[in-house]
């Protein structure tokens, strides 16, 4: 019963600790890097611009000793979705589309704009997936949390306890595997009492009913466990105020220059990719 193994899916991206120089960067720098690649990927108009961003991402991956194949493998599950998008693009006719009709299949026109749109969506998605995959491969959970803390630290200086948001994210990370264990136990308990999950019935109302005995105790257990965690945190002296931190990420002058470079790159590349000339006219 493979459905019952929730740990299989309960991770978002995967950290690959290869001790590279990219891994050694401070979390804040990694967030800037994420921004510097994600912004042009999202802003790119022609598909080739997005593909250029993706290629850059793969080059950084090489420097980070993360195999490009590892990142590209993540694209595979997206292929059916991409096929669907393309089908939708082609099947629907879009108001204002005056581009050349390339192919006529009965009532369906395949236009240049539709193809170009499909290509752009696919390229943007691929670029973003590579970028985010690279980020989660090089930033561990605790660095993701520390990064949020560092980004928000100017607020802390104003006396606003912004670290609380970082703590929320940290607790969420910690609880996902715990919830996976709880959910597995609950599903097994209810399956042992004759509940059926997914199997057999096609009746959606019955399927909704089948989830209640899982969802309700899962949320109740989450709340019960949060009561215990509240006590544990209070007992260890936390009361919501400002705190210090063990982890520190000393930033040398080289890394400072890199940060400035990343911001500059983000600005320039966004301008470039959003104005990049399209080989197929205005629609692209």
């Amino acid at each position: 019963m493979k459905d019952l193994e929730f740990f299989r899916n309960a991770t978002l991206g995967q950290y690959v600790d290869s001790h590279s120089r990219v891994h050694a960067l401070a979390p804040l720098t990694k967030y800037l890097g994420l921004f510097a690649l994600a912004a042009p990927a999202l802003a790119s108009r022609p598909a080739y611009a997005a593909l250029a961003v993706m290629a850059l991402g793969l080059l950084v991956a090489l420097a980070a000793k993360v195999r490009p194949a590892f990142l590209l493998r993540g694209l595979k599950p997206a292929l059916p979705a991409l096929a669907l998008i393309m089908a939708l693009q082609v099947l629907l006719s879009w108001p204002g589309d005056e581009s050349a009709v390339l192919l006529r299949l009965g009532p369906i026109d395949v236009t240049l704009a539709e193809l170009a749109n499909s290509a752009r969506i696919a390229a943007r998605l691929a670029a973003l997936m590579v970028t985010l995959g690279l980020f989660t491969a090089t930033a561990s959970e605790s660095q993701i949390v520390h990064g949020i803390e560092d980004i928000l630290s100017p607020l802390s200086r104003l006396g606003i306890p912004a670290h609380r948001l970082a703590l929320v994210v940290g607790i969420a990370f910690r609880f996902i595997p715990i919830l996976a264990g709880e959910a597995e136990l609950i599903v097994k308990a209810q399956a042992s009492r004759g509940a059926d999950f997914g199997s057999g019935t096609r009746n959606p109302v019955r399927r909704v009913k089948a989830w209640l005995p899982v969802l309700v105790p899962l949320m109740l257990r989450a709340l019960e466990r949060s009561e215990s965690l509240v006590e544990a945190m209070e007992a260890r002296g936390y009361s919501g105020g400002l705190r210090s931190r063990l982890a520190s990420y000393p930033v040398g002058s080289g890394e400072k220059a890199l940060r400035a470079g990343l911001v500059l790159f983000a600005v320039v590349s966004v301008i470039l990719v959003s104005r990049a000339p399209s080989p197929f006219g205005t629609w692209l």
């Binding site: 959970e141 990370f173 910690r174 466990r225 945190m233």
Partner: peptide, 13 residues
């Protein structure tokens, strides 16, 4: 203070 359930009292990953 140390509580009953090991997993419920750990805060960081």
């Amino acid at each position: 203070l140390v509580f009953q359930s090991p997993a419920d009292q750990l805060v960081a990953s």
